[in-house]
Design a binder for these strands. Structure first.
Lengths: 231, 231
DNA sequence: CGACACGTTGATGTTAGTCAACTTTGGTGG
DNA sequence: CCACCAAAGTTGACTAACATCAACGTGTCG
């Protein structure tokens, strides 16, 4: 029996392009894999040997300089696609931020399957185009925004992206959520240092714009001001 | 007669996926358009009404904040694809940097055509995946590199990307080239100010690493050092 | 020849980075 | 259960890098 039958992202991942028979064929070349928080899935510079769908959890994509500076270049959520099909090498690492559950394929197998299923490639194309738009937009933050603007933008982005499918609030954005990032990871995402991130959090708290009930919890108290600060 | 017959990027653009009959059909829905340096093709936030292939020239993709700060988020060269198929709006502007020649399609027409030609979509997918990799890698520069590292990385990148197809030097990179950017545009690409860019150029010249025969001309004198500086 | 956009250079200011001490949190084992 | 420890986060003092403001070249095109 296909594990896809019970897959919670069956209708949101690129698999949604496939009918039951096709899904069975795809299922035959994929397998589930569990990852613990912090566990790497793919290393930067590796031959591109696997691709995957995220079923559960959050993972980061990152690159770094030789002397150890790191930049997070993407964050993936359930139903997102991971890896580099149709290409020889991977240009960034993939690491689980939370415990995660992914559906992995050998890249060669996936490439072959995708080439024979245009509907799947179409979904993947749409996703990739959206991701490119999002990534390009993030470049504005990295290149041109101040530390305050960066953190404000980040929190607003999180409040939108951490919404669970099905469990939507009326507005489509959360006022209260748990970050899947440590302070260091927030810094690596925003192109700042951990100290600067910490100071910006403290500032927002002091100004009554957010509450920080625990290390990773955030409550947005004054969204309007936060939006104004986001630039 | 199809203008594709004389198209210099016929075999490098995504059109290479199509046979002569298909090309004729694509040609029927596209038209050539000339752009002058500085002329915009698409505005940020516009409804996505057109897509295009670059035939000749260099164009920038850019976004900005409301208060006028700008970030260049991509640069496209002959044979590259422009625009946002399968999506309602465009998240960044497209502007010619040099006089340019593009082959434009209405987005709706292109979407329809692409959906019926999986080989075309496949090419587009490959291109989009590569562009995403490149864009993500650039995030490391924006988020984590110093001004010196940024300019060195930029010049090395240019020396590779400005190579004319067919006219390759032995190594595959140019020692001497003409930038398609003003100092301000270099600044917008690197997330710096024009003054900082200017100072970094002067520094590289003083150190004998590059020569600057004219405003936009660059000669790399000491590639090894430049690579070391790129971080 | 002169006007103007583009680029360079210098002086100064501000932001975020660095270095270091200290506090809080959460997990572990006595 | 609580004491202790390591890891994570915060805060402060200081510094460095880049931005800002302003003046001054320089090349280009009518």
């Amino acid at each position: 029996m296909s594990s896809c039958d019970t897959c919670v992202v069956r209708n949101r991942a690129i698999c949604a392009a496939l009918d039951n028979k096709e899904i069975a064929a795809l299922s035959a070349i994929g397998r589930r894999r569990k990852l613990e928080a912090g566990e790497p899935l793919i290393w930067e510079g590796d031959d591109s040997v696997l691709v995957a769908n995220v079923i559960e959890g959050v993972l980061k994509l990152s690159t770094g300089t030789e002397d150890g500076r790191e930049q997070i270049v993407g964050v993936v959520y359930p139903s997102d696609f991971i890896g580099r099909p149709f290409g020889a090498t991977t240009r960034h690492s993939v690491t689980a931020l939370t415990d995660a559950n992914v559906c992995v394929f050998s890249r060669a197998d996936f490439d072959g399957f995708a080439s024979e299923h245009p509907a799947l490639e179409h979904k993947l194309l749409q996703r990739t185009l959206s991701e490119l738009d999002r990534t390009r937009h993030w470049m504005l933050l990295l290149g041109r925004k101040s530390a305050t603007e960066k953190l404000a933008t980040f929190l607003l982005d999180m409040s939108e992206r951490l919404v669970q499918p099905g469990c939507e609030s009326e507005s489509g954005a959360l006022e209260s959520f748990e970050l899947p990032f440590s302070r260091q990871q927030v810094a690596d995402l925003l192109g700042l240092t951990i100290e600067t991130v910490s100071r910006q959090f403290t500032q927002l708290k002091r100004d009554g714009i957010v509450e920080l009930p625990s290390r990773r919890a955030v409550v947005i108290r004054d969204r309007a001001t936060l939006e104004a600060l986001a630039g």
